[in-house]
Design a protein around this nucleic acid. Structure first.
Length: 497
RNA sequence: GGUCGGAUGGCCGAGUGGCUAGGCUCAGCUCUGCAAAAGCUGCUACAGCGGUUCGAAUCCGCUUUCGACCUCCA
C-alpha cells in the first residue's frame, strides 16, 4: 500500500488514514494506573503505539502524542463501596498517595526508557485535571444525560442509547446489558446497571478527595481521558489507542461522555492492541500471573529461566502483529534474543561495508531482490503497521550482507546505489521506526586495547602451533562473556555478551 | 449464558482464493588447527467434516477446542 491504512476498531475494517488537519496527527493512548508496578502486559500498548507515533513522524506528520497517567482513585463500578485503588494501596504501603504515585510513575518511566519508547508530547495526570473533569460533568448534566444521587453523579446510558449508538465500539447491545441486570437489592444508586459514574462521593476514610458542586469526592475513571484528550487534542481528534480490554466499558464510556459534552464523537480512528498471554491466559492482576518489568529484566521470577534484555522484549513484541495475541514463553523470548543478535550483527557489519567493484550491479537479479525487499518495508507498515513482515524482510537481507562480508556473495553483486539504500533503510527502519538498539552499549577504547593485546598473544601462539595456549585465551575470554571470531582475512573480531 | 476473536510445521509466528513469509531448533555440507560466527542445503504445515470454485490455510456451513469481553484490567 502506498498510503497508510490501518484497522479502525470502531468500523471494524482497515481504513486509509486521513488526518483532520493536513500534516498533523493527534494520538491519545490510555496510560497506566500508577498504583502498582508495570508488568509485561503493559509493555505491549506502549511499544505498539510508540511504533505508530514513530511511523507517523517518519511519514512527515507533526504528531502530538498524549498519554495520560491515572493517579486518581479508580473505583469498582459495581461494588457497593467505592474502592479507591490509589488510596487503598497507599494506605497499605503507608505512603502519601502522591508519594506512591510518584514512585510508580518513575518506575514506569524507567521501563519506557529501557524499552526505548519515545516520550509522549504531553503526559497529563488525572489529579492535575480535576477542574476540567468537573466542568465536563457539569456540561453533561446540563444537557440532561447525567444525574446526581447523594453526592455521586452518574451518566444515563439508557437515555443516551435512545439516540446514540451505544455499544457500537465494543459490539454490545444495550438491551442485553439491561436484561442481564442483576440488581443489587436496591442498594445501587444507579438508575440502570449500565450507567457509569462520572463523579463519586468520597466516603470518610477515602484519602484522595476534592471539592465539587456535589460535595467532596473524586472523578470517575472514564471522565479523565475524555477531559484530557479534548483539552490537548481537541473535541475531535485523529487516533485513540489502548488495550483491547479497555474497549468496554472504558472507551465506550468515553465516546458517550464526549458525544454529549461536545455534540459529536471524539475520535476518528480507534486502535486496540491485543493481549499478552501466559499459558494461553491473559496476563493480568486478577489472574495472578503477571511478570513485572523489573522481574523480566532481572530474571527474578519463578517462571523465568533467565533475564531478558528490554530490547529483546521489544523485538519479541514487534515480531507479532499488534492485533494478535502473543503468548509468553521462555522459548519464544530466547528465540527472539538469538534472532535479534544475529540481525543486529548483520547491521553492524553493513555499517562498515564499503561498496567495491563497478557501480553497476554484477548480479542484477539479487540487486532487484534487495531493492524490492527494502521497498516492501514501507508497504508493510502502511498496511496496518505490520512490523512482523518488516522484520521478516530484514532477515532476507541479513544473509546478503553477511555473504558480502564472508565472500560468498561478490562484493559488487549489488550496485553502489543499492548499497547506499540498504544502509539508509536499515537505519531508518531498525533504529528510527522500530526503535531498536544494540543489546549492549558500545565498548570503550580501553577494552579494545586490552583485547588487542590478548588477540596478538593468541595469534603468536597460533603461529607457533601452540593451540593449547591459543584455545586457553579464547576459552577464558568466552567464560568472561567475550567471544572471539577468527575472520577469513586473518583478522579477529569479538562480541561481548 | 450473551457478544466477539483464535486454532498454521518440533517451538514461535506472518499470511485472506493460485506465486508454498520469517525467526528459533534440528540434520548435513563449506570455511576453520579445532571452534565460534557466517554461508549453503534439507525438514513443506495450515483443528476436523462438508460445501462454493478450474483452484482454499485463505470464502460459506457445521463440529471440536482455546481465549477475550460482559467487574478492575494494557
Amino acid at each position: 500500500m502506498s498510503e497508510l491504512h490501518f484497522y479502525n476498531s470502531y468500523t471494524r475494517q482497515k481504513e486509509k488514514f486521513e488526518p483532520i488537519t493536513q500534516g498533523y496527527a493527534g494520538l491519545y493512548v490510555c496510560g497506566p494506573t500508577v498504583s502498582g508496578e508495570s508488568h509485561l502486559g503493559h509493555a505491549r500498548p506502549y511499544i505498539t503505539f510508540d511504533i505508530v507515533q514513530r511511523y507517523l513522524k517518519h511519514l512527515g506528520y507533526k504528531v502530538r502524542y498524549v498519554r495520560n497517567i491515572t493517579d486518581a482513585g479508580h473505583f469498582e463500578e459495581e461494588g457497593r463501596e467505592a474502592i479507591d485503588k490509589v488510596g487503598e494501596k497507599a494506605k497499605l504501603e503507608k505512603m502519601e498517595p502522591m508519594e506512591m504515585v510518584h514512585k510508580y510513575t518513575s518506575m514506569f518511566h524507567n521501563g519506557m526508557h529501557l524499552f526505548n519508547c519515545e516520550e509522549p508530547a504531553i503526559e497529563p495526570t488525572a489529579t492535575g485535571h480535576i477542574i476540567e473533569q468537573i466542568t465536563m460533568i457539569q456540561t453533561i448534566m446540563e444537557k440532561g444525560y447525567a444525574y446526581e444521587v447523594d453526592g455521586s453523579v452518574y451518566f444515563d446510558v439508557k437515555k443516551y442509547a435512545e439516540t446514540y449508538p451505544y455499544g457500537k465500539l465494543s459490539g454490545r447491545i444495550i438491551e442485553d446489558q439491561l436484561e442481564t441486570t442483576r440488581e443489587l437489592d436496591g442498594q445501587d444508586e444507579k438508575r440502570n446497571k449500565v450507567d457509569f459514574a462520572l463523579w463519586k462521593k468520597a466516603p470518610p476514610e477515602h484519602i484522595q478527595r476534592w471539592n465539587s458542586p456535589w460535595g467532596e469526592g473524586f472523578p470517575g475513571w472514564h471522565i479523565e481521558c475524555s477531559a484530557m484528550s479534548s483539552k490537548y487534542l481537541g473535541e475531535t481528534f485523529d487516533i485513540h489507542g489502548g488495550g483491547m480490554d479497555l474497549q468496554f466499558p472504558h472507551h465506550e464510556s468515553e465516546i458517550a461522555q464526549s458525544t454529549i459534552a461536545h455534540g459529536h464523537p471524539p475520535v476518528r480512528y480507534w486502535m486496540h492492541n491485543n493481549m499478552i498471554t501466559i499459558n494461553g491466559k491473559k496476563m493480568g492482576k486478577s489472574y495472578n500471573n503477571v511478570i513485572k518489568l523489573s522481574e523480566l529484566f532481572s530474571g527474578n521470577h519463578p517462571i523465568l529461566e533467565q533475564a531478558y534484555h528490554p530490547m529483546v522484549v521489544r523485538f519479541y513484541i514487534l515480531q507479532t502483529h499488534y492485533r494478535s495475541t502473543l503468548d509468553f514463553s521462555n522459548e519464544a523470548l530466547q528465540a527472539s534474543e538469538r534472532a535479534l543478535k544475529r540481525l543486529w550483527e548483520a547491521y553492524e557489519i553493513l555499517k562498515k561495508l564499503t561498496h567495491k567493484g563497478n557501480a553497476e550491479a554484477e548480479d542484477k537479479d539479487l540487486d532487484n531482490k534487495v531493492i524490492n525487499w527494502l521497498n516492501e518495508c514501507t508497504d508493510f507498515l502502511n498496511d496496518d503497521f505490520n512490523t512482523a513482515k518488516v522484520i521478516a524482510n530484514f532477515f532476507e537481507l541479513a544473509p546478503v550482507i553477511n555473504g558480502i562480508k564472508g565472500g560468498q556473495v561478490s562484493a559488487g553483486a549489488i550496485s553502489a546505489q543499492t548499497m547506499d539504500l540498504l544502509k539508509s533503510t536499515f537505519k531508518i527502519f531498525l533504529e528510527d521506526i522500530l526503535g531498536l538498539k544494540p543489546l549492549q552499549a558500545s565498548q570503550s577504547g580501553k577494552l579494545d586495547n586490552v583485547l588487542a593485546l590478548l588477540i596478538d598473544m593468541r595469534k603468536d601462539a597460533k603461529k607457533r602451533k601452540d593451540f593449547a595456549a591459543s584455545d586457553l585465551i579464547r576459552n577464558k575470554l568466552a567464560e568472561a562473556g567475550i567471544l572471539l571470531k577468527d575472520e577469513k582475512d586473518g583478522k579477529v573480531s569479538y562480541t561481548v555478551e
